[in-house]
Design a protein around this nucleic acid. Structure first.
Lengths: 138, 138
DNA sequence: CAGCATCCTGAAAGATACTG
DNA sequence: CAGTATCTTTCAGGATGCTG
C-alpha cells in the first residue's frame, strides 16, 4: 500500500483506512483480546512453561491461557515445545514474528502511559459537567 | 514508570506488564472496539460532520457512529462543534490528544501490513497440517 | 440532519470440575 | 503438569423505527 504521495500529510493514515480498515482490524482482532498482549510481553522477558505463565499473569484462567496460547501458536507468534518427559513439560517462547510485535505494542503502551491522565481528566470533566452522570456510552 | 534499569533489554516491556497490564488494557479498551481507530484515522484527514463520517466509514451504523463519537468526545480525543443552524450541523475533529494517537496507531498498522501474510501462512500451515481442521480456538 | 430508544443475537470470557 | 469439558454471564454491536 504505497498509493500515497510523498509529502502528503496523510500518506500514512491511509494505511489505517486503506482497505476500509480491514488491515488494521486484522491486527486489532489479533491483539485486542484481554490477554494476548500480556502474554506476549511476558514471554518477551523469557521463555516460560504453562504454569509459570499462569503465575506471572495475574487473573488469567487456565482456560484463557490455553486458548490464547493456542491462537498465538497458530498465528506463528509463539512457539510451543513439548518435552516427552514425565511429568509433562511444555515451554512457550516468542518467535521472531512475535518479537516483532513488541515495538509497535510499546508505542501504544507509551501513549497510554503519557496520556491516560489527560483522558481521565477529560472524562471526569465531561461527566461532572453539571447535568446527568453520563457513564460510558453503551 | 521508569523503574527499569537502562541497559536492561526489557526496560520497556515492563511498560506493558507494568501494573499487571492495567495501563495497556486501558488503551486497548479504548481503541480496540470495532470503529474507534477507523474514525480517528478518518478525522485525521479532515474535520467532518456526522453524515460525512457515516459515508466515509463503510459498514458503520448510525448507532455505532453515535456511540463511538460520544466516547471519543468524552475522552477528549475528538471535539464536537454544534452549529445553531437549521438544519442542524455538527462537526467533529481530532483534538491534539486525538492526533497524538495517530503515530502509535500507525506503528501497529505498519506491523499489520508487513506481517499479515506471514501470519496467514502460519495459520494455514497449522490448520492444514494433516489432522483435523482446527479453526480459531474458542 | 443528527441523533435517540428498543429489541435481539453471537461471541468473549469467567467459574468450576475433570483428565492424560 | 498441562491441559479439557461444560455451564453461565456479559455485553458489544447489528437491525429497525422514531424525533428535535
Amino acid at each position: 500500500m504505497s498509493q500515497a504521495q510523498p509529502g502528503t500529510p496523510y500518506e500514512h493514515t491511509c494505511m489505517i483506512r486503506g482497505d476500509g480498515g480491514r488491515t488494521i482490524r486484522a491486527v486489532l482482532d489479533r491483539i485486542c483480546d484481554k490477554w494476548t498482549l500480556l502474554i506476549v510481553a511476558t514471554l518477551d522477558e523469557q521463555r516460560m512453561r504453562f504454569g509459570e505463565l499462569h503465575q506471572h499473569i495475574p487473573g488469567i484462567s487456565q482456560r484463557m491461557l490455553t486458548l490464547t496460547l493456542r491462537n498465538l501458536t497458530r498465528d506463528g507468534l509463539v512457539s510451543r515445545t513439548a518435552f516427552a518427559e514425565v511429568p509433562p513439560r511444555v515451554e512457550y517462547a516468542l518467535t521472531p514474528l512475535g518479537k516483532s510485535l513488541i515495538p509497535p505494542a510499546l508505542a501504544l503502551a507509551g501513549w497510554a502511559m503519557e496520556n491516560n491522565a489527560r483522558i481521565m481528566e477529560s472524562r471526569a470533566a465531561h461527566d461532572t459537567a453539571d447535568g446527568r452522570p453520563s457513564p460510558p456510552a453503551e
